[in-house]
Amino acid sequence: MTSVLDSEKAAETGGITVRRLAGHIGAEIHGVDLSQPLDEETVAKIRRKLLKYKVVFFRDQRIGHAEQIAFARQFGELTHAHPHEDAPPAEFPEILTIDPRRYEQKYGESFRDRYTKRQYTYYGGWHTDVTASVNPPAASLLRAETVPEFGGDTTWTNQVAAYEGLSEPLRKLVDGLRAEHRFLAGQERSDEGDELSRRIKANLLVSHHPVVRVHPETGEKALYVNPGFTTRILGLSATESRKLLELLFEHLTRAEYTVRFKWEPGSVAFWDNRATAHLGPQDIGHLEVERVLHRVTLIGDRPVGPDGFVSEIVEGEEFRAVANVKVA
């Protein structure tokens, strides 16, 4: 019997092998050194695997900020670190460092207790990166520098498979709907005077996106809502919107659409942000462990729905390479 790995090997040349990790999403790519420039053929192969498996992983990569940025640039132009990040690493404005110590330094020692769900990033629940922006990142690339011996895994879900798993009547319904996305949806706080709240208010991001997005490269339809940013479905009553979003959130995070990745130092994850959502670590908030990762994101375009609707800005501006962070 031919294994999945063997079948992928047979389809590749140049020493690259691919090992699938789950039924709907995820694969490890071996035989690529991300510290070196890649030829056009290798870049094209990695892109094809990314589009097919939605998230691909590389192990044992000994790279720093410069090499991570150089690798990512072979797939597109990079954004600034984050719409709310005013202090990326010196000389590397594209890098967003994910480290709980940084957030405690920026927002106070009580940050870990007050924002438990976000203690390892701006938001640690299920989300698609920066969909509050009218042009969310096309893809994200995350590199592990220091990770705990156990725990701290990240999980991704395939939103194309989730859409295809809906019944036909429900697909027809959501095909024509639009939703509001805003930064840290559903994370309202009573203390609006803290620094993080002031930062968000000074840099508002609110956009209207199609509930179903047509992928610009594959033509696939993907659910395009997520608990981290989607606040409501336009044109529905508050109750209808809440109930439908609850149904879609529960559906898109079903186990059969997901893959869970165990980080090691030197691991790199590269995911299609147009067709996935992901979940940060949920199991180490009570532990004194060190976890430091670095992310870059590729500039994306405005989502387009099956009916031709193109995403619209409500507040803020497009997410581009040049930072425009207002410090509250």
Rank of each mutant, 00 (worst) to 15 (best):
S7C: 06
E12I: 02
E12L: 06
G14P: 00
T17F: 04
V18R: 04
H24Q: 13
G26Y: 08
G26R: 03
H30W: 07
G31W: 06
G31N: 06
D33V: 01
E41C: 01
T42R: 01
T42H: 03
K49C: 03
L50W: 09
Y53V: 00
V55S: 00
F57N: 04
R59L: 03
Q61C: 02
A66K: 11
A66C: 02
Q68A: 10
Q68E: 11
I69E: 11
R73W: 06
Q74K: 05
L78G: 09
H80D: 01
A81D: 02
H82F: 12
A87L: 05
A87R: 08
P88L: 05
E94V: 00
D99P: 03
P100M: 01
P100N: 03
Y103A: 03
E104W: 00
Q105D: 08
K106S: 04
F111R: 06
R118W: 14
R118A: 15
Y120A: 06
T121S: 15
Y123P: 12
G125K: 07
V130G: 10
T131C: 15
A132P: 12
A132I: 01
V134G: 14
V134D: 14
A138K: 12
A139R: 05
T146V: 15
G152E: 04
D153T: 09
T155E: 05
Q159D: 05
A162I: 05
P169Q: 04
P169S: 07
R171G: 01
D175P: 12
D175K: 04
A179G: 13
A179F: 08
E180N: 08
A185Q: 12
A185T: 12
G186C: 13
E192S: 09
D194A: 01
E195N: 00
R198E: 12
K201R: 15
A202K: 10
L204R: 11
H209P: 12
H209Y: 11
H209M: 11
V211M: 12
V212S: 07
V212H: 05
R213Q: 13
V214R: 12
E217Y: 09
T218K: 02
G219T: 14
G219D: 07
E220G: 11
L223T: 10
T230Q: 05
I233K: 09
S237R: 09
A238R: 05
T239R: 06
E240A: 08
R242F: 04
K243L: 07
K243P: 00
L244K: 08
L244N: 10
L244V: 09
E246D: 14
L248K: 08
T258W: 05
R260G: 14
F261H: 15
F261I: 09
F261G: 10
F261N: 10
K262Y: 07
E264L: 08
E264D: 03
G266R: 03
G285W: 03
G285F: 08
E288A: 11
R291Q: 04
L293A: 07
V296C: 11
G300K: 13
G305I: 14
D307G: 05
D307I: 03
I313A: 06
I313G: 04
E315W: 02
R320W: 05
A321S: 15
N324K: 14
V327N: 14
